[in-house]
Each structure stands twice: as C-alpha cells, then as structure tokens.
Design a protein around this nucleic acid. Structure first.
Length: 156
DNA sequence: GCCAACGTTGGC
DNA sequence: GCCAACGTTGGC
C-alpha cells in the first residue's frame, strides 16, 4: 500500500474555452495554457488519482462546476510549440520545455456552487480560493476545503 | 468597461 | 538588483 494520500486541487478555466461540459464530452483532456511558474509547479506535484474542483472563471456567476481527477501526470504542454496557439511560447526550448500540462477526466458534475456561496462557507474563510488578489489558476486545497464545497453542492 | 492585484520585462 | 512600465487576470 502506498502511504501517499490523495491530494486536492482547484483548477480555473473560462467555460467558453474549456468548461466542465467540454470535459464530459471529451472524456479526458489535457489542461493546456498554464503560463505561470507557480501554477506549473503545482501541476508537477499532481499524481494520478488526485481530485480537482473544476472552477469556472470570468463568467457570470463564477463558481465550481464539478469534480475531476488526474489521469495523466505532468508532461510538456504541446501548445507551447504551436505557433498557431494563443499559448505559443517561442522562448520555450523543445529540449527543455518550459510548460507542462496534466490530463484530467470527469468524476461527477456538481450542482453549480457560485462564488457567492463559496464565500459563505466557514471552511473556506482562510482558503487561497478566497484570498485577496489570488489569480493563480491552479492551487492546492485541503481535504476539508474540498469536502466543504462538495457537501455544499450536495446540500442543494 | 472598470479597476485592483499581481507577474514579467527591460532599462539602468 | 532595482523598479517603472506594461500585460493579464478576474470579480464586479
């Protein structure tokens, strides 16, 4: 038995670009476009079986749409080498790629939990999710934070 | 559309 | 190494 316990994460995306419904349609998907070193380093810490809250940002209202799980660990994000991609990074050396992605798959859709609801959860009061000025698109949650959101969704 | 917050870039 | 300028994020 592995001693490693499942870790919990939150990942943000704009639903118009890649929302939870897209993940459901495709079955699995590479999480491309992360171009922030701190977020990338979190991607590199992810292990298969880790659980992810899939958050919709820059939409009205923002909120958590579902649960996903990591099915593929970090590997080079191909969009960094694609000149046609908005995520193209000409400074990234193919011999030492700068940016990674992970592959995730849906676990279950949640009743949509809006940001306004998240702000009311005492378990999230000190979470990075609600921290002022937090713009990171990938970051860890505690199991307590993750469970509080799932319970809120299930409570209707 | 506005704006606060933050990361990155580049001149020095 | 500093820091001003600039670009991006993301809620409102």
């Amino acid at each position: 038995m592995s001693a490693r316990t499942v870790r919990h994460w939150l990942m943000k995306n704009e639903p118009d670009e890649f929302g939870y419904h897209h993940l459901e349609q495709r079955g699995r998907g590479g999480w491309d476009g992360v171009r922030n070193y701190q977020a990338r380093n979190f991607l590199r810490e992810m292990a298969i079986g880790d659980l992810v809250l899939f958050y919709h940002s820059s939409t009205q209202p923002p909120g958590v749409a579902g649960i996903a799980t990591v099915v593929g660990t970090a590997e080079p994000d191909p969009t960094q080498f694609d000149p046609a991609s908005p995520y193209h990074d000409p400074a990234s050396d193919p011999a030492a790629p700068r940016w990674d992605w992970v592959t995730i798959a849906p676990v279950r859709r949640l009743r949509y939990v809006t940001l306004a609801e998240l702000k009311e959860l005492p378990e999230l009061a000190s979470s990075r999710l609600l921290a002022r000025g937090n713009r990171l698109s990938v970051f860890p949650l505690t199991a307590e934070e993750f469970d509080a959101v799932a319970r809120r969704a299930d409570a209707g």
